[in-house]
Design a protein around this nucleic acid. Structure first.
Lengths: 226, 226
DNA sequence: CGGATAACCTACATGCATGTACGTATGTAG
DNA sequence: CTACATACGTACATGCATGTAGGTTATCCG
C-alpha cells in the first residue's frame, strides 16, 4: 500500500515530499502527453502511473490545463539548457544554426520532445492556453532562427531564397522531422539533421571523409524533472 | 430515350443525392480532423458544417470510427492519384524520390494532408483502427522509398549511409515538414523540399542557375471528393 | 506527546459526446 | 393512388472524464 511505503521510507521534509510527488506526476504527465496528447490524456492514468491518485494531482495542480502548462514549462527549461545554451555559444550564425540542428535532433530522443510535437499538432489552429504556450516557445525559437538565417545571408554564407521567417519554419520542421523519425535508432546519427538543413539552406554538403565515418552521438537518459 | 434509360436515370437520383451528402460530410470531416484531430472532433459540428445533422451522418456512416476511416481512404486515393502516379512514371530511382519530394510537398497544400499528419501524430503508439489505417499507408510509402533509396545506392547515385528504412523515414519526415510548414506561403516553392532531401540523401545540390530562378508551382484548389 | 497543517484518498456531482430508437417527409414502384 | 423504401431530424440513454467536497493519514512544531 502506498501509505506503508511512505511511512517505511526515509523521513523527508514536507517540501521535499511535495517536490518529489510533483516531479513524479510531471514525468508521468509528460509521458502521457507525448503518447496520448492532451485530449486523450486521462488524469487518473497519469496519477496511477506516478503511484498516486487523482486527489494528489488536484492537490498539486489546479486542473488539467495547469498540469499541461507545467509540462510545457519543463520542456522549455530542458530545451534551453541542452540546446539553446549550446547555440548561444557559437559566434557565427551558420555554426549556431548547425548547433541547433544537431542539438535539437539529439534532444528529440527524449520523451518530452515528442510531447512538444504532439501538443503543437493537436492545438494548431485552436485557441487554447496550452496551444498558446507551445506556440510561444516555437515562435521565439523560429524568430531566433530567422535572425540567424538573415545574418548568414547578409554575410554571404548562405545564398538568398524565401523570406527568413519561412525558411526558419522549414528549417525547424526538417530538424524536428529527422529527430523524431530517427529517435530510437541506434546509433543515433545527429549528422543526418545537419545534412538535411545544409541542403535546405543552400550550404555546401559536409566533407565526404567526415560523412563516411558517420559520427554518432550518444545521449544520457532522461533526467529527473526539477 | 427508352423507358429503361429513364427509369435508370430516375433511379440514379437517390444514389446521387446519397453520394452528394456523403461527399459533403466527408469533406467537413476531413477539415475537422485536420484541425481538431479525432478525439476533439465533434460529430455534430461536422454534420452542421456540411449542412446536415448527426442523423444524416449516422445514416451514411456506421460510427465515428467508420467516418474517419472513410476520410483516410479518401486521402489515400487522392495521394496516389496526384503523387504516387507521377513517381511511378519515373524510371530512375533518384528521379522517383525527387518526384515524391516535390509532389508530396505540393500535396501538403491540401487540407487532407494536414489531416494525415494530425491523425498520424495522434495515434502514434496507440492501437486504434484509424491509427492502423494511417500507419499502413505511411508504411507502404516508406517501404517504397526505402527500396528506391537502396536502388539508388547500389547504382552509386547516392552515397552509403544509415539503413534505407531509417533514411526513408527521415526522407518522408523532411518532405512532410517542408510541405506543412510552407503550406499557405505564396508563391509555394516546392523546390525547398527537393533541396532538403538532396542534402539528406547526399545528392549534389541543385544547379545555382536553376535555383536562382526559383520555380514555383501553383496548385488547383481542392477537388470534390468522389 | 498532541494539536495543527499539509499531503493524500474516496465518493459524488456535473457536463459533454457518442450511439440508438423512433418520428417525419420525400421519393419511388406497382 | 397506395404501399414501401430511403434520407434525414429529434430526443433519450449511456458512458466517461473532469472537477469538488469532505474524510483520513502523515509530518511538523511547541
Amino acid at each position: 500500500m502506498t501509505t506503508a511505503e511512505i511511512s517505511g521510507s526515509v523521513r523527508r521534509r514536507q517540501a521535499d515530499r511535495r517536490a518529489r510527488t510533483r516531479s513524479a506526476l510531471l514525468e508521468a504527465a509528460a509521458r502521457g502527453l507525448s503518447t496520448y496528447g492532451y485530449a486523450n490524456l486521462v488524469l487518473e492514468r497519469v496519477a496511477n502511473e506516478a503511484g498516486y491518485t487523482r486527489g494528489a494531482l488536484y492537490h498539486l495542480f489546479a486542473n488539467k490545463e495547469d498540469l499541461a502548462l507545467a509540462v510545457v514549462g519543463w520542456i522549455e527549461e530542458t530545451w534551453n539548457a541542452e540546446v539553446g545554451r549550446r547555440a548561444d555559444q557559437e559566434t557565427h550564425p551558420v555554426d549556431a544554426l548547425i548547433a541547433i540542428a544537431r542539438g535539437h535532433a539529439a534532444y528529440c530522443r527524449r520523451e518530452m520532445a515528442r510531447a512538444m510535437v504532439t501538443l503543437r499538432v493537436e492545438f494548431t489552429g485552436q485557441d487554447h492556453p496550452v496551444g498558446r504556450a507551445i506556440a510561444t516557445i516555437v515562435d521565439r525559437l523560429a524568430a531566433s532562427c530567422a535572425a540567424l538565417i538573415a545574418a548568414a545571408r547578409s554575410s554571404g554564407a548562405i545564398p538568398p531564397g524565401p523570406p527568413p521567417a519561412a525558411m526558419a519554419s522549414a528549417f525547424l520542421g526538417v530538424v524536428e522531422a529527422v529527430g523524431i523519425e530517427l529517435a530510437g535508432q541506434a546509433p543515433f546519427d545527429t549528422q543526418l539533421a545537419e545534412r538535411a538543413v545544409r541542403g535546405l539552406l543552400g550550404l555546401p554538403p559536409v566533407a565526404p571523409a567526415v560523412e563516411a565515418r558517420g559520427d554518432a552521438a550518444v545521449l544520457p537518459p532522461d533526467e529527473e524533472p526539477t
